[in-house]
Design a protein around this nucleic acid. Structure first.
Lengths: 203, 203
DNA sequence: GTCTATATTGTGATAGAC
DNA sequence: GTCTATCACAATATAGAC
């Protein structure tokens, strides 16, 4: 079977995801990953050579998963706002399932922005098409005239920020009540969509 | 003179800010802080006892500075949207002067959320007043009816996110062109205000 | 207050038996 | 493939001279 990986290798990856994403590259310890995987440190190096290599495996996988899949926004023939609604719901749903990954990615990229440029370019070659599509909507009077990039940053920011700022928001608004905070997050699927809708749709 | 601190202590703090905020607590090295301050490691411990204590000095100062000063939003008698406009301009202006602090705070809080609850409570005791004020605006039909906390999270998120996600945004939208990205950031003072305005003002 | 030197522990990585 | 034992060095912290 192509792409088959040993059980141990998978166990290591599962453990490494957990520890790296929670503690960050600098805060993570190979010992903790080994414990989490139920093996010893030496095996980590046997499979991945170094901490850096293991980190890269975890990071690239997470990055690939969370770089917004904007292809859907282009290919579909449904009305733009319908596609937008499902995009927002899907993206927030993805974060709800992996709430610590966005903060992990943003932090690690801030630490090490250099080597990302080339890596990104191959995954955003359809971006100009999306921008063009937004411009068409504007030309048809369906969206207010504004910089499409500002719109996109706003959308992603509104989806991501409540998770990245979880401890502050939970403490400030919800007195650290987890349940209340979870409800707040669930509501954001509609909240973000309505917010975006109202701000870019002409009156 | 009350609150006087030695020149060396100040040099250490300046250096510690730079290194901690850039590298994070785990990524920071006492040696690097010492080099940056032009002294040796031993002096760091003489003044601050431990890495953790020095980190806390830097973190609490940054946190205090960046926890939004919402008092202004309450005390002023000007129209709500005017105050909001200057709040957004001031807050983005603050971030423009210290672009790495928001990411630093968010990351460190994610690592260590426990001990923040009590610390926050003393600084947000006027929050209920602000929420009440927003509710009044809603009752008067000046703002659409919605959860005030969602509005506040949206405002802060739109201000903060472009800075926290700097490497991605710069790479994806600006091919790593610093100048273009800086212009984009400058435009956000108006962008965020208009975006918020359109989304919460009734048509 | 500031330095050099050193203690002490932590941590990534490797050697080598099984 | 997996383990134990260990190396080599990095990093926080302290002792003690000046």
């Amino acid at each position: 079977m192509a792409g088959f990986s040993s059980n141990t290798e998978q166990n290591i990856l599962v453990a490494a995801r957990k520890v790296f994403i929670e503690k960050g590259r600098d805060g993570a310890r190979m010992q903790e990953i080994a414990n989490e995987a139920g093996i010893n440190k030496a095996l980590l190096h046997y499979y991945f050579r170094s901490k850096q290599k293991l980190f890269e495996a975890v990071f690239l996988e997470a990055f690939d998963k969370f770089l917004p899949q904007t292809e859907l926004l282009i290919s579909s023939d449904k009305p733009f706002f319908e596609i937008l609604k499902s995009f927002i719901e899907n993206y927030i749903g993805l974060i709800l399932e992996n709430p610590h990954i966005p903060g992990f990615i943003l932090h690690e990229l801030s630490q090490n922005p250099e080597n990302i440029a080339q890596f990104i370019s191959s995954r955003v070659n359809h971006l100009p098409v999306l921008i063009e599509k937004i411009r068409e909507e504007m030309a048809q009077g369906k969206i207010k005239p504004m910089d499409p990039r500002q719109i996109m940053v706003n959308i992603i920011g509104l989806c991501v920020f409540p998770f990245v700022a979880r401890p502050i928001i939970k403490a400030v608004f919800f007195q650290d009540d987890d349940t209340a905070y979870e409800i707040f997050l669930q509501e954001r699927k509609n909240e973000v969509y309505n917010f975006i809708l109202n701000s870019i749709k002409p009156c």
